[in-house]
Amino acid sequence: MPLLELRDLTLRFGGVTALAGLDMEVRRGELLALIGPNGAGKTSVLNCISGLCRPGSGTITLHGRDGERHALHRLPPHRIAALGVARTFQNIELFRHMTVLENLMLGRHLHMRGGVLAGGAYLGRQRRREIEQRRQVEEVIDFMNLEPLRNQVVGQLAYGAQRLVEMARALTLDPALLLLDEPTAGMNAEEKESMARFILDLHEERGIAVLVIDHDIDVIMDIADRVVVLDFGRRIGEGAPAEVRADRAVIDAYLGRAPNGAGD
């Protein structure tokens, strides 16, 4: 049974059809890459899964840890997060005026309790809750090597560091499924490599299923278990990286030919 099933998903913005009857699935514990030309609908898929866009028709079903089926296309974003779906954004969306630590503590929002009164009083119980969650956050900080940045305000960090913090924040949610929207965009080769390493590590060590969008085809081919190719809101190819790379339709739509027809 797959972790996540998308069936006949359609999303329109006015006259533009972003997704046209898309079928795909994310299997339990796999690292799935979603590729395709600009405007193919990749980010729209992520937005539908995380509840930021409501699909016009079609279903998104998550087979939860509790064995239940959840219809994500009917839930608001915070409920979807509570089911263990975390994500990052193409244009880093961090809480700019907060420190790295506070950003990551927000990732624990769902895992802790305490309302306005408990927080304002900050008596023993709430204090223990905060400290307990701090321990969890420190594990992620350790995992992502963010110790030196812990108390820095996020808005002042370098671009690459912000990407790592955003991924760390998604990790503190303790997700079953992690959606990464172009995690290596705007990075140099070295940063890309370390990001790819982090993605592999969290996938392997923590057993998190990952759905990653990226334009760096070499990174994708290196790390993905499986690749789905989109064009015009439809799936035009699917399979292991090597298969997709050799697929005629995929080459025509996205990968292109090597010079002198060497790709044939």
């Binding site: 915070h78 975390a86 809480f95 907060m98 927080g119």
Partner: peptide, 23 residues
Amino acid sequence: RSRMGRAFVAVRDQDIAASVIGV
């Protein structure tokens, strides 16, 4: 410095990001 207050600030800084991490 506690859970709910952080959620307030998160809504100010980036409400979409706040919603996808469960606020």
